[in-house]
Design a protein around this nucleic acid. Structure first.
Lengths: 200, 200, 200, 200
DNA sequence: AATGAATGAGTTTTCATTCAT
DNA sequence: TATGAATGAAAACTCATTCAT
């Protein structure tokens, strides 16, 4: 029910009442329970839909011969994800706000979802390492930075309501930072310090 | 009340009842309301404490002459933040789970907190750019990636319960990725593709 | 509807839902209401059927000349009643459990049914008294003991699920106790005490 | 709660709402749930009280030397039971109407209660048989007739609302029928027929 | 300062019944 | 004659908050 999606996104799980949903949908109480077992059930169903939407958006990097260049595929992924989020703000709001901290079951579902996405990103990074494109780093941590960076950007521009620059600019900046890092080339002194001055 | 902190962290806001808190604290209902106006109030108080703890942990990079090297300061910041989070899991859980999606007021408080932190990070990056240490990038987006990456790492290792490697390793990996990026040097072809194949 | 009978007997009135009945009968909701006005209505109809079944089972003692001996008629009545109950457990369960305590109207119907039966029994006893076969006792109370005894036996063996001896044994024991009482002959001392020690 | 007892007795379990109980008791909803877990719970508590009341009313026949005569003890039991019932009509109504056919758990509790009472009566009858006071009959069936007769009398005079004669008269009639039976002495022909004409 | 019994507004869920097709 | 999607009144239960002691 799209009305439920909108309401949950706007008000959160607990502040959305069945009464609100059925009023928005223009149906009767009984009708609601004809299609959904409970408030939890409709939210779970909604959530599963959102998970599926995102999982379809992210495609593992294809490294077989003849596939498009890896950089191209990566960029396409990022653009697709950002497009999906931009055109489905409610979806992002539910995933990042309404579905968080509800109870162990929902938290588990959300955690599983992020784990799945992380494993795709990690897989791509590991492939990149093997191909010699990516520096040999801990792929799990790197994947978390990629995912977390994207989530934080989405949160501020789509949920917290900060003024959003264009999607392309954001995507380009994001990729640039992730690809080349923040440090300017030739700053090996600072690098050493970052890596733990005492140790070196 | 430390009992409240623990309970909110364990069960979330809505699943923690006043009854649980007073039972854990061994006080009477009335006594609770003697010290706190409401459930919201104690949670807000708790939250403000958490914000303060973290804000003390992050120190703006000091660029005046005679200050420790910038890389050193940055590393110290990251290590301090990670240490604080590791030794206060409940605090992280509340911030990342219990305090999310409660209602506009709490969401606003949390958003303000992150904005504050973001502005510190952004300020440091901008300083780095001016000093010629950091590549000239959109500092706001870069700051989000830094913050988001850290949050995601905290979420998986401290909230979702994935098995955490040692803090030092995580800190080192985090800094390395953020500093130098993922892409190996000399991969300018891929870089161009990442920046938007069509455009080039 | 035989399915309704079974369900009401198994689960009671309130725990049997229209949904259960139509599912068991393999018909649609609307079809049910085509044949029965309401849940009450089908239950009332069922109940009337049960009353009729039992009323046909009990035949007033025929005292006209040429009729079978009174003892024979009485025994036949008891055997018929027990046989009917044994071969229609659902019917007994509804009468003794599902139809009890529903509301004033149903309670009234059930009470009327038992009053009718009582009046037949009482009539037989009064006839027996007039014929000199039966001791001159309060026929109303005596009839209640006969009916109540039979009901209690039915309750334990057919409703509560206690292990039942054979029908014949039960019938014989029942008739023996009702006919000759519990006290052995010649125990006039105890009889006097039973009748009220103070008075003698 | 005496108000609950009255209401359950008057209207039955399902027609008594929590709203009725709290209104009658002059308390708030929350107060009710402070003392009782649920509607079931208060009814179960009430029921257990009623069971205890009756169990205290019936005393097993004492057959040790020096005890009052058995007939006297029996009569005292019957009088006590009838007195209890007469002075607590609500109690009888709940036991015989409101608590019947609610669900398997309550039905089981009621059945257990009656089984307990039956076993006391059966024990007394068996003792009487051994002492030579009572005819050697199936004590279980005899006990059911005693209990059932009493229940039916109670039902008609206290629940169904038929005009009640005095307690003493009812008690005397009841004991007389149970003690000496209905058949007049010397009606051995009829007795034979009752026992099964075909067989003899 | 501390207590805890009492409160009642607020919400979910159930299920007999209807009626357009 | 049959269907089954839609209805909405009704009722149990929760829990943050109050206030007299």
């Amino acid at each position: 029910m799209s009305h439920a999606l909108r309401l949950f996104a706007e008000r959160g799980y607990h502040h959305t009442q069945i009464a609100d949903i059925i009023e928005a949908a223009g149906i009767a109480r009984g009708t609601f329970y004809l299609y959904f077992d409970s408030k939890r059930a409709i939210f779970a169903e909604l959530l599963d839909g959102l998970f599926a939407t995102f999982e379809n958006t992210i495609r593992p990097i294809d490294t077989t011969a003849g596939a498009p260049p890896v950089g191209e595929q990566t960029r396409a992924n990022v653009v697709r994800v950002i497009d999906t989020m931009v055109s489905n703000r409610d979806l992002v709001r539910i995933l990042m706000r309404a579905a968080v901290g509800l109870d162990p079951e929902f938290d588990g579902k959300v955690a599983d979802f992020y784990r799945k996405i992380l494993s795709v990103i990690r897989g791509s990074i590991e492939a990149g390492i093997q191909m010699g494109l990516v520096r040999p780093r801990d792929a799990a941590v790197a994947a978390m930075i990629v995912l977390g960076g994207l989530k934080e950007i989405a949160y501020h521009y789509l949920v917290a309501g900060d003024q959003p620059p264009s999607s392309e600019v954001v995507a380009a900046e994001f990729l640039a930072v992730v690809a080349s890092g923040l440090l300017r080339e030739g700053q090996s002194d600072q690098l050493r310090l970052l890596a733990g001055g005492a140790a070196s």
